[in-house]
Design a protein around this nucleic acid. Structure first.
Lengths: 238, 238
DNA sequence: GTCATCATGTAAGCCGTTACATGATTGC
DNA sequence: GCAATCATGTAACGGCTTACATGATGAC
């Protein structure tokens, strides 16, 4: 899951580890606070697997720079230093990561996978939703519907329990159960709105291009390509 | 955290592992689905630490029995078999766990601990709330207020981020961020209601008995007793 | 007599953490 | 020159999961 998040972040911009951690923390729905002891090994694994490449901080780009604060010439000096460093390569400086084509394919595959296969449901769903722009319309709908089904299921179980032993249950436990139930209901209706919005988008596209089936075929082809890729990945990773 | 949950369930009733798992699943706010590979070792640790004792299924009590379904004489036969088994003790049957005094003290201490010390915030808070009847009024309030403060903090961070890069952020990521923000706000106001209810309870008691300070002293004494106990526990556990 | 469920346990592994070690850069 | 922050990494450990192994009980 961490690896998916990293790949997603790296798609479109080059970043170094320290910066990746920050963006993970506050760019992704508030709840992806990963430690360095987890991040750096993950970057290492991705690099060994060929999903990302690293270079020793070649010419700090605007995307990488954090706000200069004092402005003015510090940027110039930093650039000079990094140029010096880039040639030397013994200097323990920033290591900038860039996603590879293989990494991009891996990302697409991880994203399309069943969220329930990587443990923490809420996190796993949230992460995929945050990257939903990289999903096909079909994959997006599948993501939302799976999540909805899961929540509806939880809700049914919860109600079965609360209905049966409602009077015997501890007051505090009941308070909690009720709140959880409410939250789940709200999340379901939120999902319903998102699903409806996605469907509406689909319908308007259909009117113009009519290529739903074509898209599904594309997806299947892609899955096949990726399946092979994953075997390489798994061999290299473990 | 698992150990706290087990001790809490065991307070007041004797249960065997398989049953503990079920109750953990559906008695505790829907989200404590633990596997056997996790549960049995935990029970073993608790037993070695002297927090629980086990016996080989002596005379199936009403609390332990699951609904007999067919009713009638199957219960009688089961009791006979278990009596035969209880003496032999080679029979790989149910192992019934009972909490000890030391276990009860350990539970009280774990419950009163800072929830943020055992990882997953929501789970850890939920579990403690479910067992809030075992907390002192003071401990209960502290639990609720800590959780409230944590959520308020999260919310502030989230808003700082969303406010800054709101226009540049990905539409799906923003959707998610907004939903998370809403949920957090709702949870905060729910907590506010709970806190107010607890305070009201406190005020009504104060009018009758006026023993707030006494209760706090009791708590401090208890903490001291428990501190020593925990050292034994940690030695035995790790 | 056999299949589902109840019941207990071990082993390997995953995914993350904290703590530690190291060093560069910047601000004062 | 010293502290804070940026930056990268390793080692040990924690808590949970899945998969495996084993066996009893009950229903049909």
């Amino acid at each position: 899951m961490l690896e998916m998040a990293i790949l997603g972040l790296l798609d479109g911009q080059e970043l170094h580890g320290y910066e990746i951690r920050k963006r993970l923390r506050d760019q992704l729905g508030l709840l992806f606070n990963v430690s360095f002891g987890s991040l750096y090994p993950a970057l290492g694994r991705l690099e060994r697997a060929g999903a990302v490449e690293s270079t020793a901080d070649a010419g700090i780009s605007g995307a990488v720079r954090t706000v200069p604060m004092t402005g003015s010439l510090s940027g110039e000096r930093a650039a000079m230093r990094s140029r010096r460093a880039a040639s030397g390569r013994g200097r323990r400086g920033r290591k900038v990561y860039r996603i590879t084509d293989s990494g991009r394919r891996l990302f697409a595959e991880l994203l399309e996978r069943d969220p329930s296969s990587d443990g923490d449901d809420a996190r796993s769903f949230g992460l995929r939703l945050a990257f939903a722009r990289y999903l096909t319309p079909h994959g997006r709908l599948r993501l939302l519907e799976r999540r909805r089904a899961q929540l509806a299921d939880d809700l049914a179980n919860a109600r079965a329990v609360t209905a049966g032993g409602s009077q015997g249950l501890d007051p505090y436990a009941r308070l909690l159960a009720e709140h959880t139930t409410d939250s789940t209901e709200r999340e379901i209706s939120w999902l319903d709105r998102l699903i409806e919005a996605e469907r509406a988008k689909g319908r308007s596209v259909e009117g113009e291009v009519r290529q739903d089936d074509l898209q599904n075929d594309d997806m299947d082809d892609m899955q096949n390509v990726i399946e092979n890729d994953m075997q390489d990945m798994e061999g290299a990773t473990s």
